[in-house]
Amino acid sequence: MSEQPVIQIRNLRKTFTMGKQKVHALAGVDLDIAPGSLTVIMGPSGSGKSTLLYLLGGLDRPTSGTIQVNGRYLDQMDENDLGLFRRKSVGFIFQSFNLIPSMTAMQNVIFPMRFTGVSNKERQKQAARMLSQVGLAKRALHRPTELSGGQQQRVAVARALVNNPPIILADEPTGNLDTTSGFGIMKLLSKLNLEGRTVIVVTHDMRMCQFASNIIYLLDGLTVSEAEYEAASHFEIPEEEPEEV
């Protein structure tokens, strides 16, 4: 791709300490993501794909390596700058929606704008526009418990969009949904991508790949080729003989 990548990751490592054991969630990842692409990050659980997504969104800090987003190094930002970065540049979508139960769909969508100083009128307008964009204009005054899983995730998508970020980060967005609503969310993400946003989706739902412009395979904290990934997922476990005691 000739275009300057919107995200550049170099030798990214993230190590967690669990008790006395060190777990290398990311063990030196290099990655370029082009603006306007829809990148799917595939990998089994424990491959470090969610960790990678959170690092991209500035929700977590790397152990070493650099993350460059729009020319700015996230690894060098302080907490305050990271907060502002998340506010302006990225929108998160989570597997478990993370809606605030006491708030209506509208209030949930407005929530991110309460930290920005946008006028009240503008907030209402913007949130209403986002809700109708995800097809939930009529459900604006319902609380999350009164909405289906797919609808809840749509509210979450609207919330992610409301500050108009150029990058959307989705962590297993279809993981808690039935196949139909999951597919609806995938189409919605694809639509956002076609409107010009960079979308990065972490999933192990193979159907997402048909919308992807770019697929990244992660295994044990490292990017691998599709062939290697295939090989690993077809690895057969030899049947163990029952041990005699």
Binding site: G83, L84, R86, F111, P112, F115
Partner: peptide, 11 residues
Amino acid sequence: LMKAVGATNRD
């Protein structure tokens, strides 16, 4: 969530 949608530590 507040942090994810852009609340700073100070907020």
